[in-house]
Design a binder for these strands. Sequence first.
DNA 1: GTCTATAAATAGATAGAC
DNA 2: GTCTATCTATTTATAGAC
Lengths: 202, 202
Amino acid sequence: MTYQCHDTKEKIMEVARVLFSDHGFEGTSVRDIAKAADVNVASVNYHFSNKENLLTEIMRSGYEECSHTVKSIYERNNSLEETLVELFQYFTERSHNLVSMFKIKLSTQHSHHFVAEGSKDQLLGPPGGVVIAAAIRNELGPDVTEEDVVWALRCLFTHVVHQSLMYNCCMKQGTSFQFTDTDIEKSIRRLTRIVLQDLRKK
Amino acid sequence: MTYQCHDTKEKIMEVARVLFSDHGFEGTSVRDIAKAADVNVASVNYHFSNKENLLTEIMRSGYEECSHTVKSIYERNNSLEETLVELFQYFTERSHNLVSMFKIKLSTQHSHHFVAEGSKDQLLGPPGGVVIAAAIRNELGPDVTEEDVVWALRCLFTHVVHQSLMYNCCMKQGTSFQFTDTDIEKSIRRLTRIVLQDLRKK
DNA sequence: GTCTATAAATAGATAGAC
DNA sequence: GTCTATCTATTTATAGAC
């Protein structure tokens, strides 16, 4: 079993993302990860130097994956409403990516993962936020104010992210959740329409 | 220093809520709590039997405090919009209560704290959700459908909770946050108005 | 690159004196 | 109710054989 670096490293990251999402960073031991990934305990430190660095790589790849997904979704359908609905579907398929990123964002200890490398003081916005903002501008034409775009972005992104978190966590917990994915899709569409409608009135 | 049970127990809960909120349940040791509360290590187990039970008591009191706050806010001002804005202000004053509750909700391991004691399968809704739903019905009169009330509740509560989480976490992290509390208040008011407006049209 | 063995620190919990 | 001391288990990380 020599020369399987790439497979092992990626397997560790994928398994760790799931475990961090379910039990948190501190709630997951390197041994748990190695066992679940079916690799040796020492290989985690070999490939990532230490546990903290494993988190760093997971966060970076997760943020990039999400940004890239939003971009490619919008380039395909060219519609704000459809993009938001498909973003919810992506968050459901890759719920561990969303949940682990969000938990880290809420943590004091690991929040530095959301600070861009070059400019240490600049907080990263939501992944794909630039694309959604552009989509809003495209729907409303050139007369829309920047303040309105920011407000709409915040309303809509918040809604999609929070509904995705609630939907996927309650599903995982096995408790009877009141809302189906169809309900949430309807909710996203309705909110998108009334937000755009309000911005057009001005 | 004898007979100070009540003080010690409450001090432990208050300190633990802050630490759980910042570093998570697993990221906080019983020793950390005892040190921050300036009590002996053994007193945590004396008053709460074990660490898990300390979390149980924190969650229960946090949920009740929040529900009670929402109720008393609405009884005082009798306005949906004002209640949501004041709820955001409460979430800011007591951000550790919100953050710790939300983190636990996202966790697979500790999600059982959101299951009501009597009926083990029933998931608890958002704290104060019943009051907000009643406020929505009061604004719209008796003709409003239950589906619309549920949608409005979800939109508005989601917005307030998520904005509060983002606002308080980014503040705590010391990074330059783009939005002031005034911005978020405006955002809540604007969303409340367009949601109610949409429901009235039907 | 993978493995075993182990170091060094820390975790939750408890026993027993006061 | 508070405290010290301690047991047992588990943690991250590393050293060194293969």
